[in-house]
């Protein structure tokens, strides 16, 4: 039973076609990584799933519900879908704790104490319980990104979307974030990752999708795609350039 279902989705910015008839399914509990060159449409695809970008054709359903432009439906959808941004996007004027609890109290109308307990729980999960009262700019990039992940986790999402979450980080900070994601994967979270970390994608994913020119060019288990069994020359070339 798939939790995310895309049926010939197309998307364009003006007259630039970014997604061309993209169809895919993501099964509950699976981890799917989307790889591909810059501009191949992978980030846009992810943003469409969360309704951050409207689509021009086709259909997306998440957890059985169609993604529309209706504000209320989007609100409900987004509480079930966690989205982690490349640039963290923490709220600079709020403490780490409040960054996490604001969704709980404002959106889900939970009590402050309950929200706080949840915040502590998810911060422990990402190993940052000691930063509860810090402000975002007192944290390193890696820590900020872990808080951003915790902010999503607090809403107990059924699906998490990761949009190049380590691209803005210095190499020495990527590891701590990837470890958190790997933990989530082994705990059974359904995830779609857009990433440039090929090693990581290979080790953590159940399925890899290679995007090229706005289409899903090739997909399959990581062993196959990275193991020299890629079918298309584009993917072979991409793997050669990026992976090892």
């Amino acid at each position: 039973m798939s939790i995310v279902h895309l049926n010939s989705v197309s998307k364009n910015f003006g007259h630039i076609e970014v997604l061309k008839n993209v169809s895919m399914d993501v099964a509950r509990g699976s981890v799917v990584s989307i790889i591909g060159r810059s501009g191949s449409g992978k980030s846009t695809l992810l943003r469409c799933v969360n309704g951050l970008e409207p689509i021009q054709g086709g259909e997306i359903t998440v957890n059985g519900k169609k993604v529309t432009r209706d504000e209320r439906a989007l609100k409900a959808l987004r509480q079930e879908v966690g989205f982690v941004f490349q640039s963290f996007n923490l709220f600079p004027h709020l403490t780490v704790e409040r960054n996490i609890t604001i969704g709980l109290t404002v959106v889900q109308k939970k009590a402050r104490t309950e929200a706080k307990a949840l915040a502590e729980q998810v911060l422990r999960q990402v190993g940052l319980i000691d930063k509860l009262n810090a402000y975002p700019d007192e944290l390193s990039g890696g820590q900020q990104q872990r808080v951003a992940i915790a902010r999503c986790l607090a809403l107990s999402p059924k699906l998490m979307l990761f949009d190049e979450v380590t691209s803005a980080l210095d190499p020495e900070l990527k590891g701590e974030v990837l470890r958190v994601i790997a933990d989530l994967a082994s705990a059974g979270m359904t995830m779609i990752l857009v990433t440039h970390e090929m090693h990581f994608a290979r080790s953590v994913s159940h399925e890899i999708k290679f995007m090229n020119a706005g289409k899903i060019w090739e997909s399959g288990p990581p062993e196959k795609l990275f193991g020299g069994e890629a079918e298309t020359p584009e993917l072979r070339q991409f793997v050669q350039h990026h992976a090892y």
Partner: peptide, 24 residues
């Protein structure tokens, strides 16, 4: 991206304005 971040955790546009945008 700040607006998107608020939307992505399920806030309405009004909530995003009040809790995310106006103070900064």
């Amino acid at each position: 991206s700040q607006v998107e971040s608020g939307l992505s955790i399920g806030m309405s546009r009004v909530q995003v304005f009040l809790y995310v945008v106006i103070v900064p």
